[in-house]
Design a binder for these strands. Structure first.
Lengths: 154, 154
DNA sequence: CCAACATGCGTGACATGTCAACCATTCCCG
DNA sequence: CGGGAATGGTTGACATGTCACGCATGTTGG
């Protein structure tokens, strides 16, 4: 960290970075508002439910779920406790491994996400994809994948 | 919401969307870790300090600051209270408008951000921009701006 | 002038996320 | 075997964000 070995961002990078940051905070907020308003679910609730519906029997081990979501286990544990209280999911013991636990989708949970999904997708489309050309979508995917790669290395 | 008027996302859109979501949660986390570790600042502290250093005299009205950050005023108020306790910023009354208040950068705050900035920029570059071609940066800026436009309309 | 209303900000109760312990089980190796 | 280390999960204390409200000042219309 001697004299000046850290080049600042150039103008275009600055602009992209600021826009990126702004979008990164406002887009999730907007999605959350819509879900909350129309379906009484938070974006986080929705993410959990998506993971569960992605599996055959709606049962996932806690750690696997945390990994899939990119959450800390303790955060997930707290969140599952809250969702359990609302009847959206349930905990279940794991026969194979006495320590383990499953999170399972309840019928209420399934009903909730099925009711919420169409509106959510509609919102995502209208806020993001309807504004983008196919080439831009491809570009977005390329960019995010590259950055994700960097993040995994670090 | 009759039969099936909500087209799901196509494969490429799905992929882009998932990558986007993953990056949206992991990148801020990584930046936060670096700042916290090297400079004892949270990413939010940093954002506040950036806004203050962007002005001539390091003084900004609370509402203007909240708007610039895209935060709720009450969130900012709490955060300023905490930063004030650490000596990074201070509150100041507003002569023009007896209700108003300024947030001002203290010398300690200025020192903190000046110390933190190089490492932060280095991290942003290495995680994001070093991986991208100029064309991709341009594309990123175009995409994020379009989406931001949508968000403002809504 | 002054009574409503609007605006700028702070506060307190509560929801959520993080961090560091803490069991209970399972693994591993002497 | 048996005992320490590793693993899976939870919990509690605390940091942060949200929401609804309160208070003081400012603004406006009769």
């Amino acid at each position: 960290m001697s004299a000046d070995e850290t080049p600042w961002l150039d103008d275009r990078q600055q602009q992209a970075w600021r826009a990126w940051l702004a979008m990164g905070s406002r887009l999730p907020a907007a999605l959350n508002r819509q879900l909350q308003r129309d379906s009484d679910l938070s974006l986080q609730d929705f993410d959990v439910l998506v993971q569960l519906t992605d599996t055959e029997d709606g049962r996932v081990r806690v750690s696997a779920l945390a990994a899939a979501l990119g959450w800390e286990r303790s955060r997930l544990s707290h969140h599952v406790t809250r969702m359990e209280r609302r009847g959206l999911v349930a905990r279940e013991e794991c026969g194979d491994d006495g320590r383990g636990a499953f999170v399972v989708l309840t019928p209420e949970g399934r009903a909730a996400i099925e009711a919420a999904a169409p509106g959510h997708v509609r919102t995502v489309r209208s806020l993001v994809f309807d504004a983008l050309t196919p080439a831009e979508v491809a570009s977005l995917e390329a960019i995010t994948s590259k950055v994700l790669g960097r993040l995994e290395d670090a």
